[in-house]
Design a protein around this nucleic acid. Structure first.
Length: 669
DNA sequence: TAGAGATTAGTTTTT
DNA sequence: CTAATCTCTA
């Protein structure tokens, strides 16, 4: 009765199966979010408290959408009040809750810092003994990979297969020690720390297991070994869970995700029930046929056949452009023409691409035509320098052992403390085995430092201790405003940047402070909680942009889970999609799944485009159409006539004939 | 120490 | 061709 009639048979089955372990293999557009939200509502209707259902997603956006849709269903059941206590979160924010609750057992202070990779790059460089940023990042990447695979530092040294890997493995232990000394964790630790705690502490494990009656994981194919282990721990012997995933949409292998977790599930849970959702409600039959043809080139883990009752729909348009700038122009023109012809809205259109940098030319072309747009993904609001500056002060306020935060705070705004003083300070701190902040309070150092630097250190020290003493009693908003005022941030912005930049930065700081204050008031969060949350939240301007009538620009990764009436998939070239690095690593399958994700975002029309040449680093490079275009159903493709000069057009026809020949050869085989 | 100009390296996806 | 990093001078 609590199961909506609007669900199809397998969907209903997935919702009503509440007793044992369940795997839902949900093809693209088969209504998986619908199933998950209906299941939450169903469980609540069955008497399960909303707080006892752990629903786990990968992104904040997915969590937000799930929360909203589940809340609607609950409201329809007259249980609107239940929505507030739903335990819907990302893997990382769930991990954060656990680390926060168990901080003491994990040897962390309540105000522990969460450092992002940028904060840790210089530490890694130092540990590896390199000045080369690329090398440092490679080592950092490697260490992150080991953490996600639950590999310990000694084990990493054992399995390291190259000199670079060995250097990274040797840095690994020192890296964790530095984090511990700073009372800090990295992103990966938010998963790894709970896992290691549960591994060694049965009492803590039992406590967390007792908190949930049912667990749901979305995008299960994208879990990494650490996440799977955390999930298994939480599920425990009760084994009441719903894992929803699609091996054809596994696109996070580069981040340590492994479809082994999907393959492993029937073995780990012999009573596992598997339900397939194969009816697609999203795309035209033609788009679906292309998607199926494409993905048929991959080895299959589970046999799955997507079908649709929707009409055939428009042919897929392929556009060939002379270079990336004209590709952007052509796409924007076609988009506008299409919108005019179909009297559509801007928000019905999405431009999808492989890498963030590809967005630039499209932004320029859209602006030139006065087309409103929004970019999802890309550089986060919280990565902006001015926000990180303010956050550094917050981190230091909450955790004075956070050396990276101290360094950023003392040097921005500039106030007479430079390399020399910092070096002296860090020598003293190392000698005394204390934090930079603690060392900065030492009278001995004050005497040795130049008067200006000594004064700055004293000022920061008293600012921090003053605000800290008031943090418990006074609202976060007031403290923040005072902080920004007392460090003279506005003045510094005005004197350092030109008028426009200073204005923009000042506005974004004001927005940030306002947002954080509201958060502090409405959700009654403490300063440490607010500070920790910032590290995991990526989009401030989420909701507004979703509703706005704008063209969406997005990477393929960030577009997963979304759908649009009309999709332009751009830069479909060898070297981009599939990406060059992936070709070299032989990871074509994952690139193909990425293309598959792109194709299956489209509901009514799909447009592909590629360039013949592309500007790069000042020069030009030749480009070839992606092999994936040749893998689509050829009868469904139409090459649009690009306005090319006659000579180009002739070459284009020749290239088309070549492609046709290649296709025929393919079919013959 | 801080800021202005010179130089040089860059291109994958993200919590 | 950018954008960030580096080097030099005040």
């Amino acid at each position: 009765m609590s199961i909506p009639q609007a669900l199809n048979a397998p969907q209903r089955e997935a919702v009503s199966h509440v007793e044992g372990p369940l795997l839902v293999l949900a093809g693209a557009g088969s209504g998986k979010t619908r199933v998950i939200t209906a299941k939450i509502a169903h469980l609540v209707a069955q008497g399960v408290a909303p707080a006892r259902i752990a629903a786990i997603t990968f992104t904040n956006k997915a969590a937000r959408e799930m929360r909203e849709r589940a809340a609607k269903l609950l409201a329809a059941q007259g249980r609107a009040e239940a929505a507030a206590s739903m335990a819907i979160s990302t893997f990382h924010s769930l991990g954060l809750s656990i680390v926060r609750a168990e901080a003491k057992r994990l040897g962390l202070r309540p105000g522990f810092s969460i450092l992002d990779p940028a904060d840790l790059e210089s530490l890694i460089a130092e540990l590896v003994g390199t000045a080369d940023r690329a090398r440092a990042r490679a080592a950092q990447w490697k260490i992150s990979g080991w953490k996600n695979a639950l590999v310990t530092p000694p084990r990493a040294r054992f399995i390291a297969a190259s000199d670079d890997e060995l250097a990274a493995a040797r840095a690994f232990a020192g890296y964790d020690e530095a984090l511990a000394a700073w009372h800090a964790v990295d992103f990966d630790d938010l998963i790894v720390k709970p896992v290691s705690l549960f591994d060694r502490d049965p009492e803590a494990l039992a406590r967390w297991q007792a908190r949930f009656d049912h667990a749901l994981v979305d995008e299960y194919q994208d879990t990494n070994p650490a996440q799977y282990r955390m999930f298994r721990h939480l599920v425990g012997a009760r084994t009441c869970f719903t894992a929803v995933g699609d091996d054809d949409q596994a696109i996070y292998g580069w981040r340590g995700a492994t479809v082994d977790n999907l393959a492993q599930l029937p073995t780990d849970y012999p009573s596992l029930r598997v339900i397939k959702l194969e009816q697609n409600y999203r795309s035209s039959a033609r788009i679906l046929r292309c998607a199926n043809a494409l993905i048929a080139n991959n080895a299959k883990l589970f046999d799955k056949r997507l079908w649709s009752e929707l009409p055939h729909g428009d042919t897929i348009r392929v556009t060939v452009a002379a270079d990336d700038e004209s590709e952007a122009e052509l796409v924007v023109h076609r988009l506008l023409a299409h919108r005019f012809e179909h009297r559509g809205r801007f928000r019905d259109y999405a431009i999808l691409y492989r890498g963030n940098h590809q967005a630039r030319v499209f932004e320029a072309a859209l602006r030139a035509q006065n087309v409103p747009y929004a970019i999802s993904g890309g550089d986060s609001y919280f990565d902006r320098a001015e926000i990180k500056d303010i956050v550094a002060y917050l981190r230091l306020l909450v955790n004075d052992a956070d050396d990276p935060a101290f360094i950023r705070a003392i040097t921005t705004p500039r106030r007479g403390v430079g390399q020399t003083t910092l070096k002296r300070l860090s020598a003293l701190a190392g000698e005394r085995r204390e934090s930079l902040f603690a060392a900065s309070l030492s009278p001995a150092l004050r005497e040795a430092a130049p008067p200006k630097a000594a004064e700055a250190l004293a000022e920061l020290g008293s600012l921090i201790s003053d605000l800290k003493s008031r943090a418990k009693r006074e609202p976060a908003g007031r403290l923040l405003n005072e902080l920004v005022g007392r460090i003279g941030y506005e003045d510094w912005l005005v004197s350092t940047f030109d008028k426009r930049d200073a204005q923009a930065k000042s506005t974004s700081v004001a927005d940030f402070v306002g947002w954080l204050s509201r958060k502090g008031d409405t959700e009654r969060k403490t300063l440490p909680e607010l500070t920790q949350m910032i590290a995991l939240v990526t989009m401030l301007e989420g909701r507004d942009a979703d509703d706005a009538d704008v063209v969406r620009l997005s990477t393929l990764h960030a577009a997963k889970g979304l759908e649009f009436p009309h999709v332009f998939l751009v830069g479909v070239e060898e070297g981009i999609l599939p990406h060059r690095e992936s070709i070299e690593r032989g990871a074509i399958d994952e690139e193909r799944r990425l293309m598959y994700v792109g194709v299956t975002r489209a509901q009514r029309s799909l447009h592909l485009s590629f360039c013949r040449t592309r500007r790069r680093a000042g020069g030009r490079i030749d480009a070839m159409p992606s092999r994936f275009i040749g893998e689509l159903a050829p009868q469904d493709l139409r090459y649009a006539d690009a306005p090319l000069p006659p000579e180009e057009a002739a070459r284009e026809r020749a290239a088309g004939a070549e492609r046709l020949k290649a296709l025929k050869a393919r079919v013959a085989r």
